[in-house]
Each structure stands twice: as structure tokens, then as C-alpha cells.
């Protein structure tokens, strides 16, 4: 087993441990798992970064082009962004959604592991890290928005049901989750827009045309459109709460579809090489 794969697997285990810690922190009133969760994620992030770094060094280009690399990179960014949020304001329940997401993504990356692939020369450019970095950063922020929305729906249901707080008494407040959703929406949309613009420019320099009917591109526009509508609704019509959370989840579902579906079916430029 290469040291890169070993690092990836160690990261998988650390994310699993963080998942357990986060669930424990919600279930029982204990300081230890609460404090442990971000630390486990932090160590996982370092190991995970090492894995991707080694892979990139081995491949000779940023390791963000194959499907397993993409999954792994997305998990990395998600954990990193979560830790930034967590540092500003500890949200243990959010960790209980983000940690299993990161665990699942890295586990999937391990399952479809194919090793470094040579990059078609036409794609070997500085635009690669810029385009992929921005787009994936956007995706990761939307994943966080999805996590917050999921928690929102759980918390909202619990409050509407009017039973006691029960096991879930430590969920963040609706207001906190809604605010986080809004912030993620704004940042995610900015990053996704920049990612798409950089993609268009890159396409022009590589193939001489701005547009291709690549399914990935079409799906990205669809995702972008949903989020733009959602942001508009929030800013102008005052959408919030359950409706906004539901739309955020729908938007993320389309995003996942564009990410996974397109790659699994290996369609278009993005499918063959991410």
C-alpha cells in the first residue's frame, strides 16, 4: 500500500472517530467527546492533506482530476470549512452531520481508488487548480449549507411536535442554523460563480469556445440557477426557515447528481477527466 493510500485510509478512520465523538457528544452530556470531535477532524484534515499532497506530487499535477480524487478533495474542503466555522462558533450538532459526510466521501474515494492518472495535455494548465479549486470550494460550502438545513428541519420538527427536548436538546437554535444557511448560500454562490467563470475562460483557452454541451456544465448551470433563485427569494421575498432549508437540500441534491451521476456515467470532458 502506498503511503498516499495509507494516509487516505487513516483520514477515513479519523473521520469515523469524529463521527462517533460527535454522536456521543449529542447523546450524553460530556465535555470529552465535545472537545474531541474538532480535534479528530483537525488531525484527519492534516493526514488527508498529506494524502492529496503526495498524490499530486506523484501525478505531477493537482490531484483533482479523477473521480476518487474529486470525492477526496471535496471531503477535505468540507472539513476545512467546517473547522473554520467551528472555530468561530462551536456547533457540535453540525459536526455530527459533517463528520459522517466526510467519512462517507473519503470511504467512497477509497472504494473507487484508481491511483494517479495522466492528465490530457490540453488540461494541463494553471486554470486547473483555479477552476476546480473554486468550484469545489463552492460545492463544499453548499454541503455545509445542506448540513445546516438538515439540522434545521430536524430541530423545526422537534419544536413543532411539542414533545420535550429529549435526546436532541443540544441542537443549535433555528436562528443560528438559518443564519448559517444564509451565509453559506452567499459564499457558495460567489465561489460557484467564480468557478464557472474560470471554467468558461479555461474552455476558451483550451478549445477555443466558451460553451460546450457537456452534461456537467448543464447540470452546474441548473444548480447555480436553483441557488440564485433561493438567494433572490431570501433577499427579496424574505424566504427563510423551513422553505429555505428545503430548497437548499433540493439544490444540494441536484449538485450531488451533477457530481456523481456525470462521473459515474463518464460523460463529457468532465466525466473522463474531472
Amino acid at each position: 500500500m502506498s503511503s498516499e493510500l495509507a494516509c487516505l485510509r487513516l483520514a477515513v478512520l479519523l473521520y469515523l472517530a469524529a463521527t462517533v465523538a460527535a454522536l456521543l457528544a449529542i447523546a450524553v452530556r460530556r465535555e470529552t467527546p465535545r472537545a474531541l470531535m474538532p480535534r479528530l477532524l483537525g488531525v484527519g484534515l492534516v493526514v488527508h492533506t498529506a494524502a492529496l499532497g503526495l498524490r499530486s506530487a506523484h501525478a505531477g499535477h493537482p490531484a483533482v482530476t479523477t473521480f476518487d480524487e474529486a470525492l477526496s478533495f471535496l471531503a477535505l474542503l468540507l472539513v476545512a470549512i467546517f473547522l473554520v466555522v467551528q472555530f468561530r462558533r462551536p456547533l457540535v450538532a453540525l459536526g455530527a452531520v459533517v463528520s459522517p459526510l466526510a467519512f462517507g466521501l473519503t470511504l467512497a474515494a477509497d472504494a473507487v481508488y484508481a491511483g494517479a492518472q495522466p492528465l490530457p495535455p490540453v488540461l494541463d494548465s494553471l486554470w486547473l487548480p483555479v477552476h476546480v479549486g473554486l468550484a469545489f470550494l463552492g460545492d463544499a460550502v453548499f454541503a455545509l449549507a445542506f448540513s445546516a438545513s438538515l439540522l434545521y428541519l430536524v430541530q423545526e420538527r422537534r419544536l413543532k411536535a411539542r414533545r420535550g427536548p429529549g435526546l436532541l436538546r443540544h441542537l443549535p437554535s433555528l436562528e443560528t442554523l438559518d443564519r448559517l444557511n444564509y451565509a453559506c448560500l452567499v459564499w457558495g454562490l460567489i465561489l460557484l460563480t467564480l468557478g464557472m467563470v474560470s471554467g468558461i475562460i479555461w474552455a476558451h483557452t483550451a478549445w477555443g469556445r466558451f460553451w460546450s454541451s457537456d452534461p456537467k456544465v448543464l447540470f452546474s448551470f441548473l444548480t447555480w440557477g436553483i441557488y440564485v433563485v433561493l438567494l433572490q427569494g431570501r433577499m427579496i421575498a424574505g424566504w427563510r426557515g423551513r422553505w429555505a432549508a428545503t430548497l437548499t437540500i433540493a439544490g444540494f441534491a441536484v449538485l450531488v447528481l451533477s457530481l456523481v451521476g456525470v462521473n459515474v456515467l463518464a460523460l463529457g470532458n468532465h466525466g473522463k477527466a474531472f
Binding site: L159, K160, R162, R163, G164, P165, R240, G241, R242, W243
Partner: peptide, 17 residues
Amino acid sequence: DGVYLYDIDDLEGVIAD
């Protein structure tokens, strides 16, 4: 949507919990 109403019985339930 957006209203959370608790009457005295609901609150008692919360307390019992």
C-alpha cells in the same frame, strides 16, 4: 410556518421530560 405554540400542557410535558 414559523410559529411555535406551546400551551401549559405542552410545557408541563417538557418539564416532565
